[in-house]
Write a protein that binds this DNA or RNA. Structure first.
Length: 727
RNA sequence: CGCGAAGUAGAGCAGCGGUAGCUCGUUGGGCUCAUAACCCAAAGGUCGGGAGUUCGAUCCUCCCCUUCGCAACCA
């Protein structure tokens, strides 16, 4: 492949309704930053753009939740996210925002061009309209009875009780959540992007041209989408928050957020160009530009199907690749904002980067930024979902980064100061041995491997190669044993001279290797690379990629600084504290429900939007026959053990008189196995068996929850014989 | 339901037609320059299950099972 003239790299625009967590960071920001830093080190023409995505229904909703205005929400989160990225050394050339006039202008122009060219369709549909609030209602603002389960708390897009996806038309007795009134159907016209017209183009482009160079997960998902039939997609909607539809008579309509958000990449590029006296056009129009979108897997279809169609119609270049990452789980569970099961970037920054910590109370600073960048890259979900654990973080950081990499650099410097008087020793070609030659070859080879891995978006592999080079350095040093040679060097005679020459060669190469490590690690851990530069007393320019693989980066006789440790230890307590914090912060379904009710009452019921979160629901009345379907029996617990690797589950054996059943129950946080032994419990015995953690549970134990959220077993007031019926 | 991705040593991952590999962890040994670090060695896997194609399958085909995603304010 010919080398592109310039690169435009984008990271998914984060949605400005909350702080972002490390899953986002690992998915779209760190890989992009590594790639960009690598390109910059190669002196390529590259622009790295990102910005806040500030439109869409969720922003006004969030504003209502927080009791403020949409503008206040986006200002708050825009600044917060921008700061977080900065703190984590994500080196955007520009971090823009879609609320800017330039973006509105750009998005309008984009829409107008497509509309004028006849590439959009218009359709008139009937949608629910709230006459009192005189506004069309977003799906989420309509409440009613679910046609599926009968719950009267279903929303226009989904029923929270049964989980079914709905459209507002399906709701029985729809009610506006804005006014509480019954909405009326009203005709409205919207613009649509007919994706179906571009099916052949997408098939050729993705499934043929890119079938080998895009990730399997990416093409796979695209294929699924295309095969599923490409529907026309509404480009506009009735809302007063967003980019106004630039057509006469389209009052009260804005561009759908999915349409305007990716255009944010273009407006960000324009702003960057204006700020830097550059021309933005080639970055979006010249075929010699390589466009790469870094996103998470939920964003694949937007960046591989929808946005490319838009770009094609608008006359822009198409992305060369969309190296989407899968998801990052946290301590065995999916990250979830609503359950507060997540690690926000901000929390990590506060606890590790900004807070003085560590054995000597030193500021965590850059090394803790790099610690996170290291771990998130090492476990990056490139081919499948992966998992962040605090223990894993500690282990990877310590045993790979600190022990292998950090320690190699440290012992090299210490030995150099001890045995070579603090100066870069000579390389004596006359005694160059096989170990020396092998190391030189490894240095050259690693450059090629890292480069190839990075070009193919295999970041975790690339990082591994760098660490592995440090590992080879340790092996090399062990074979050369300069500390043994040093004992010979103090004696008089010819062996002393030979010994010193061997020491010189060893440390010369170890130092050159250290310089190489700085160049190679720079895209991944920029702060560490700079610290190494300081120790070596060399300038930033040494980090140019072309210097990788060379063994003349440090001049003979040059005196170097005293070593400083590259990475501090992470103490056990820091890790356990984080795990505790995570578990304590977990929002239980019930707890959040209580908050919601309290909030609703406090606001006097005028604004009902805070009811968007789930509430306890009174189930519909049932007949005796429905109740009679249940078979309930009293039983005695005869055995009980904790289910391994599940913090909530106990495995019990319950004696039901005629039989013994294995039951898995989620009460481990409330009862210990010992406590359970011998207790009587009420069991639903005709519940369909279900596997949990690989164990089949043949029933369910009944409990009630007290005010503190603790589960209390239901049991007979006085013991009854096992197997007694409950009615 | 369907579609997509995935199931490989205790953990995390590579490999993808021809004696199963890496990192961490474990065990034993070595070294002592170094951040209780480094180096060497060993143990540990019928490559989710079943059938088929093949001289030969972890790798290809088919069926099944499990997990995740395609659909939630979430990369």
């Amino acid at each position: 492949m010919n080398q592109p003239k310039r690169y435009l790299i984008t990271s998914a625009l984060p949605y400005a309704n909350g702080l972002k967590h490390v899953g986002h960071l690992a998915g779209a920001y760190i890989p992009a930053d590594i790639y960009v830093r690598y390109l910059r080190a190669q002196k390529r023409d590259v622009v790295f753009v990102c910005g806040s995505d500030e439109h869409g229904t969720a922003i006004p909703i969030q504003a209502k939740k927080e009791g403020t205005t949409p503008q206040a929400i986006i200002d708050k989160y825009h600044e917060a996210m921008k700061q977080d990225f900065e703190d984590l050394d994500i080196s955007f050339d520009i971090y823009h925002r879609t609320s800017s006039p330039l973006h509105h202008e750009t998005a309008s122009e984009f829409f107008t061009k497509l509309n004028d060219a006849g590439e959009l369709e218009t359709k008139e549909t009937e949608q629910y309209f709230d006459e009192e609030a005189s506004t069309f209602l977003a799906d989420r603002y309509i409440k009613g009875t679910c046609p599926n389960c009968g719950s009267d708390r279903a929303f226009g897009d989904q029923c929270e009780t049964c989980g079914r996806t709905l459209s507002p038309d399906e709701l029985i007795n729809p009610v506006s959540t804005l006014s509480g009134k019954v909405p009326v159907k009203k005709k409205t016209t919207h613009w649509y992007l007919p994706l179906g017209k571009h099916e052949q183009f997408l098939r050729d482009w993705i499934l043929e041209q890119h079938k080998d160079d895009w990730r399997a997960t990416v093409t796979g998902q695209c294929k699924a989408w295309i095969d599923g039939g490409l529907q026309s997609r509404a480009v506009t909607r009735d809302l007063d928050w967003g980019v106004k539809v630039p057509v006469q008579g389209a009052d009260g309509k804005v561009l759908y957020v999915w349409f305007d958000a990716p255009i944010g990449y273009i407006s960000a590029t324009k702003q960057w160009a204006a700020d830097n006296g550059k021309d933005w056009k080639p970055y979006w129009e010249d075929k010699d530009t390589k466009l790469v979108h870094f996103v998470g897997k939920d964003n694949i279809v937007f960046h591989c199907i929808i946005f490319p169609v838009m770009l094609k119609l608008h006359g822009n270049i198409l992305p060369e690749n969309v190296p989407a990452n899968e998801f990052l789980n946290l301590e065995g569970d999916k990250m979830s904002t609503s359950r507060n099961w997540k690690l926000d970037m901000r929390d990590y920054i506060n606890d590790f980067v900004k807070k003085p910590a560590g054995p000597n109370g030193e500021n965590g600073g850059g090394q803790m930024v790099d610690a996170l960048r290291y771990y998130l890259t090492a476990i990056a979900p490139e081919t499948k979902d992966s998992e962040f654990t605090w223990k894993g973080f500690q282990t990877a950081y310590r045993s790979e980064l600190t022990d292998i990499f950090g320690n190699f650099v440290n012992r090299t410097f210490v030995l150099m100061h001890k045995l070579c008087s603090g100066k870069v020793p000579k390389l004596h070609m006359d005694i160059l041995d096989d170990n020396d030659k092998l190391l030189i070859a490894d240095i050259e080879g690693t450059k090629a491997e890292v480069q190839s891995a990075l070009e193919h978006y295999r970041f975790r592999d690339a990082l591994f190669q760098v660490i592995d080079l440090a590992r080879k350095g340790n092996q090399y040093m062990q074979k050369k044993e300069p500390w043994i040679k040093a004992k010979l060097a103090t004696s008089n005679g010819p062996e002393s001279v030979e010994a010193q020459k061997s020491i010189d060669n060893c440390l010369h190469l170890c130092l050159q290797l250290t310089a190489n490590l700085a160049v190679l690690i720079n895209p991944f851990l920029p702060s560490t690379a700079r610290k190494m530069l300081y120790m070596m007393k060399v300038v930033e320019k040494m980090l140019d990629w072309e210097n990788a693989g060379k063994i003349n980066l440090l001049s003979v006789g040059y005196s170097l600084r005293e070593p400083q440790l590259l990475f501090r230890k992470i103490e056990e307590e820091e890790i356990t504290a984080q795990i505790e914090k995570l578990k304590n912060g977990l929002v239980k379904e019930t707890a959040s429900n209580k908050d919601t009710i309290a909030g609703g009452q406090a606001s006097g019921g005028g604004v009902q939007l805070n009811q968007l979160t789930t509430e306890p629901v009174n189930k519909p009345q049932i007949q005796y026959d429905d109740f009679a379907k249940l078979e309930l029996k009293a039983g005695t617990v005869t055995a009980c053990v904790k289910v391994p690797k599940a913090d909530k589950l106990l495995q019990l054996e319950v004696d039901l008189g005629t039989e013994k059943r294995t039951i898995v129950s989620g009460i481990a946080q409330h009862y210990t196995p010992e406590e359970m032994l011998g207790k009587q419990v009420i069991v639903v015995t005709n519940l369909a068996p279900r596997k949990m953690k690989g164990i089949e549970s043949q029933g369910m134990i009944l409990t009630a929850e007290d005010n503190n959220g603790k589960l209390q077993l239901l049991k007979p007031e006085n013991p009854v014989s096992p197997g007694s019926n409950v009615s």
